[in-house]
Design a binder for these strands. Structure first.
Length: 153
DNA sequence: GCCAACGTTGGC
DNA sequence: GCCAACGTTGGC
């Protein structure tokens, strides 16, 4: 079992939006970065736990806990000419972008702000803390995951 | 709105 | 294969 942090802009798709989905599940579409894709395609397993992170908003931080709920499969938006995520170089025979489904797992007692995360010396090594980090999906260690969940409870 | 960081593209 | 130009991310 692995642990991940996945960023989403809450104005586009928030943790609350995930919780409101009929099956509390959403395909994590729109990732157009190869490293992030590789994490989903090559390393994620059904059942892996996710820190659902809100970025580019008033209070960036961890909003809740989610879980990987499907095996990887092609992101259908890459074939959709009307989608903002359309990729003319992708074909059905050779899809370029893969995703997994993400499901609501549980709430935290409170949102954990980036500011609060930064104040924890135990988390100083997290990739999230490193300057210039723009990757939308990051691996998290079991220790970091548990530490952060405890901060939120 | 600014800007640093950094991934991608494309000319050579 | 190099690298400048460009676009995007994301905190502030």
């Amino acid at each position: 079992m692995k642990y991940w942090l996945m960023k989403s802009e809450p104005e586009v798709f928030s943790f609350q939006d995930l919780k409101k989905r009929p099956k509390k599940t959403e395909p994590w579409n729109g990732v157009r970065n190869y490293q992030a894709r590789n994490f989903m395609r090559d390393e994620m397993q059904v059942g892996d736990l996710i820190l659902f992170y809100h970025s580019s908003c008033d209070i960036p931080g961890v909003a809740g806990i989610a879980r990987v709920s499907s095996k990887p499969y092609p992101d259908t938006t890459q074939f959709d000419k009307k989608s903002e995520y359309y990729d003319p170089k992708a074909t059905q025979e050779a899809p370029r972008w893969f995703l997994v489904d993400v499901s609501y797992e549980k709430d935290l007692e409170k949102h954990i702000s980036l500011e609060e995360l930064k104040a924890q010396k135990e988390l100083a090594e997290m990739r999230l803390m490193q300057k210039g980090n723009r990757l939308s999906i990051l691996p998290v260690t079991a220790k970091e995951f548990e530490f952060i969940v405890n901060l939120g409870n």
